[in-house]
């Protein structure tokens, strides 16, 4: 790769190679996003148990992907720009994974020295169940 001129160095136009999306495509994406918003609300009314969060985040991720790919033009952008933006999510996921993994596997026993059994991780909640008398 030569750093000093682009493959499309045919002219002085900045957008020499830039993709211009059609208005129709933008409008279709907007409609899809609005429909997905309705689905988000609808899905929140149904109890899928522990999958609730997963489903809500999955729908949000689809919406986000549409915005990133089409509105933000990432689909037609250069490889390096794509890598840069998507790697931010990758590294963010490291923060999530390690932090939440610690939380999930932590011994939430506030009396570790007296009882050796893992206890309910919501001990703070139990402790404050009758916290009304603050």
């Amino acid at each position: 790769m030569s750093a000093h001129h682009d493959d499309h160095s045919h002219g002085a136009l900045q957008m020499g190679h830039h993709h211009v999306s059609s208005s129709a495509m933008f409008f279709n994406v907007l409609v899809a996003l609005l429909i997905l918003t309705v689905i988000t609300v609808g899905a929140s009314r149904i109890d899928f148990g522990s999958a609730n969060m997963l489903i809500a985040m999955a729908i949000a991720s689809i919406k986000a992907s549409l915005v990133i790919a089409i509105f933000m033009h990432v689909k037609w952008d250069t490889a390096i720009n794509r890598i840069v933006f998507l790697s931010s999510f990758l590294f963010l996921s490291l923060l999530f994974i390690f932090t939440l993994a610690d939380h999930a596997t932590r011994r939430w026993d506030h009396e570790m020295h007296t009882t050796r059994t893992p206890v309910d991780k919501q001990w703070v909640y139990k402790q404050h169940e009758h916290a009304g008398d603050h």
């Binding site: 993994a101 610690d102 939380h103 596997t105 932590r106 011994r107």
Partner: peptide
Amino acid sequence: SFLVWGHHMFTSGQSTYA
């Protein structure tokens, strides 16, 4: 370097597995 930060927290009360 993004995968090792917890080595500063060995006495902090983080999970043994972490």
